[in-house]
Simulated scan of single mutants.
Amino acid sequence: MANYTAADIKALRESTGAGMMDVKKALDEADGDTAKATDLLRVKGLKGVTKREGRSATNGLVRAQVDGGVGTLVEVNCETDFVAKGPNFGELADRVLAQAVAVQAADAEALLASELDGKTVKEVLDDANATIGEKIEVRRVARVEGDQVVSYLHKTMPDLPPQIGVLVATTGGDEQVARDIAMHVAAFSPSVLQRDEIDAETVESERRIAEETAREEGKPEQALPRIIEGRVNGYFKENVLLDQPFAKDNKKTVAKVAEEAGAQVTGFARFKVGV
């Protein structure tokens, strides 16, 4: 029987993020030698990297950093919540975020191709993939610039790392109103800042659906223009940040709240892990 204890298994799981059975097999093969077992996990893991490419990485976390008027947000994914809340995965995400800030990455492709400690970030992730035994990927990166940028990270479960991350850029106003708007973005998930960012084809499609629905409902012909406009405006209120009723006071829009605070929202980004 291999010379190791339950404490050794626990320590190796925590240091590598690998699964229970993989850790036990590695310790068996290494006759209880933790260093050798760690190497075995990595070697076996590297062989499985390609096989894991098709697997779904829908867990993970978001990280954000703001330096003056520049905010960076990254989403790093894994397969299970066990790995997502482990210290190794968190440290990897911190390295990824620091690299994104350093190279001023605005998308995942640029970040993955950049060099970190003599390897590309993609190679660093493959190494982590090998050791942990799960698919690890950077799904998204956002870079938001403005006179003032704030970040907000939200935990959807108390025992997991943040799953929703937001950056909001504003001019004027104070940090508190910007932070309140960032919390609103986290809760109401707008897709764009203002109406003109929604393409005309989408708006026309919503208008057509509103008209067809109203006619199916038997609404009077003379009322159709008003009903159609009301429903299209409802679509805007769901998707356009500045048109949304504000979370803390739904009698005012986000635009109105910002205006009353002497602020203007100039940009935002929102990530929710796996969505």
Rank of each mutant, 00 (worst) to 15 (best):
K248Y: 15
E109A: 15
K85N: 06
D94S: 07
E201G: 08
V232H: 03
N3P: 02
H184N: 07
V138E: 09
A84S: 13
K44F: 07
S151M: 09
A93V: 05
F271E: 12
A186D: 14
I9M: 03
F188I: 00
E216D: 15
N250D: 15
A263I: 08
V240F: 04
K44G: 15
A18F: 01
P190Q: 06
L125R: 08
L167T: 11
A102K: 14
S205E: 09
A37S: 08
K25L: 05
K119E: 14
Q264R: 13
K36E: 15
A261W: 03
C78H: 04
E229G: 15
L160F: 03
A30E: 09
D199P: 08
M1L: 09
E211M: 14
R140L: 13
L27Y: 02
A142D: 14
R270P: 06
V185D: 13
A128Q: 12
T50C: 00
I181S: 11
A6C: 07
L167E: 13
G48F: 03
I9E: 06
Y152T: 06
A210C: 09
K256Q: 15
D127W: 04
G267P: 01
V203T: 12
V23T: 14
N233C: 05
Q194W: 00
V103F: 00
A187P: 15
E75N: 10
V166G: 10
S191F: 04
D107S: 08
K44I: 03
R42S: 08
A37T: 10
D126M: 02
P158G: 11
A200L: 04
P162V: 02
I181V: 15
A214Q: 12
V66M: 08
A128N: 13
F188S: 09
H184E: 06
G48W: 02
N239Q: 14
N77I: 08
T5H: 00
A110Y: 10
A223R: 13
A200G: 08
E201D: 14
L116S: 12
K122M: 11
D174P: 00
T16N: 01
E109H: 11
G19S: 08
G86K: 09
E204P: 01
R208I: 04
V150F: 00
A18V: 05
T170G: 10
M20C: 02
Q163I: 03
A84L: 05
A210H: 07
G230T: 08
Y4V: 06
C78R: 06
V166K: 06
E29W: 02
I132E: 06
M1T: 12
H154Y: 11
V43Q: 14
T170Q: 07
V70Y: 00
V168I: 08
I181G: 12
F246I: 01
G234Y: 11
V265F: 06
T5R: 01
E206P: 05
G172T: 09
